[in-house]
């Protein structure tokens, strides 16, 4: 078996809560791996810890326990060596945050290529044009500034910047959420292309399950800092074994079907991380909850009849919903 590109083993990220002054675990003993040229989706509601996890993988959050390694080497605690920073790049929801408003696209790309990659001015110019082509932008945009471009174009430029140093892994945090539907599809497909053509792996964080289903090979569902279900995308979406995954799927509005009573949808908000319920964290919103759920925290395991590698953290994951009372 080959070493995964990125491997988290029981990784946790803790913060001190401002209001209550207690420690909260935003990411709680998460094990997840991303292999080379693989696209892994991470879904969950706001506050589920998916962004904290993303930031951990690029060194913006510190690991408080467990381990996180890249190519088998633990991620360093302090300042990352240049080589590692080149290998893992992040793409944000708002491309403005990674673009310099005063510089043209060409200047921003060449600067990175000259300083970080060590290309000459002429080489950097040529490579910048290639990178724009890679993200399907016309070469004319080399002279454009961010505000002269559309949201979709800016996100493509942000991706081109992330590609300058030839990364092995892109960590993309809601990269298409701020885009118009008509251009969103193009950026989704671009991630698929980059994987195919450059072999880049992607950790794709999104609240949009439909987008994840169209793009990702595997998906992990997060709830209150933990992964509650994980498996190949097709499996998790067609045979969800955790009631939270089913609730998320039921809540998505559909274009093709008229309104139905969203009986499968959960009510209310997730409880605060500072006041975790005993046992299963989902039990207060769960339609299946029983006394056992308050007493015993469910572990991730392969449910009966599920495909290999498909795991869920629910005491009742062996039973599909149509078989449940």
């Amino acid at each position: 078996m080959t070493t995964p590109l990125l491997e988290l083993d029981q990784a946790s990220v803790t913060f001190r809560s401002r209001r209550r002054g207690v420690q909260v675990r935003a990411v709680d003993r998460v094990s997840l791996s991303v292999n080379s040229a693989e696209i892994v989706g991470l879904v969950g509601e706001s506050g589920s810890g998916k962004s904290s996890l993303a930031r951990l993988t690029v060194g913006l959050n510190r690991l408080s326990s467990g381990s996180a390694s890249f190519n088998g080497v633990p991620l360093p605690v302090g300042r990352w060596p240049g080589e590692l920073r080149q290998q893992i790049q992040m793409v944000f929801q708002d491309p403005y945050s990674s673009l310099n408003p005063r510089m043209t696209v060409g200047q921003q790309l060449s600067e990175l290529l000259r300083i970080r990659v060590g290309l000459s001015r002429a080489e950097a110019g040529k490579r910048s044009a290639q990178l724009l082509d890679q993200v399907h932008l016309p070469a004319e945009l080399l002279d454009a500034r961010p505000r002269q471009m559309s949201g979709g174009q800016r996100q493509r430029v942000a991706i081109a910047k992330a590609l300058t140093q030839g990364p092995d892994l892109l960590v993309a945090d809601e990269p298409v959420s701020a885009l118009d539907v008509s251009v969103q599809a193009g950026v989704i497909k671009l991630f698929g292309e980059l994987r195919r053509e450059l072999g880049v792996a992607v950790l794709f964080i999104s609240h949009d399950l439909a987008v994840v289903r169209h793009l990702c090979d595997r998906v992990a569902v997060m709830y209150m800092g933990q992964i509650v279900e994980h498996g190949s995308t097709g499996e998790v979406f067609s045979d969800p074994r955790h009631p939270y995954t089913r609730a998320l799927l039921a809540a998505i509005p559909r274009v093709t079907t008229a309104r139905t009573e969203t009986s499968g949808a959960v009510k209310g908000d997730p409880p605060s991380l500072t006041r975790l319920p005993s046992g299963c964290r989902f039990r207060l919103r769960c339609p299946l909850a029983q006394t056992r759920c308050a007493e015993e925290e469910p572990e991730l395991r392969e449910p009966t009849g599920a495909a290999a590698g498909h795991v869920a953290a629910c005491h009742f994951s062996d039973v599909r919903p149509e078989q449940q009372p």
Binding site: V181, S182, K189, H214
Partner: peptide, 24 residues
């Protein structure tokens, strides 16, 4: 039509997503 084809469907991945060229 373009908007409908550009909207990912969570129940059906067979239809390939369509990106409307250009931007508004």
């Amino acid at each position: 039509l373009g908007l409908l084809r550009a909207t990912p469907d969570v129940d059906d991945v067979r239809a390939e997503l369509y990106a409307i060229p250009g931007s508004a």
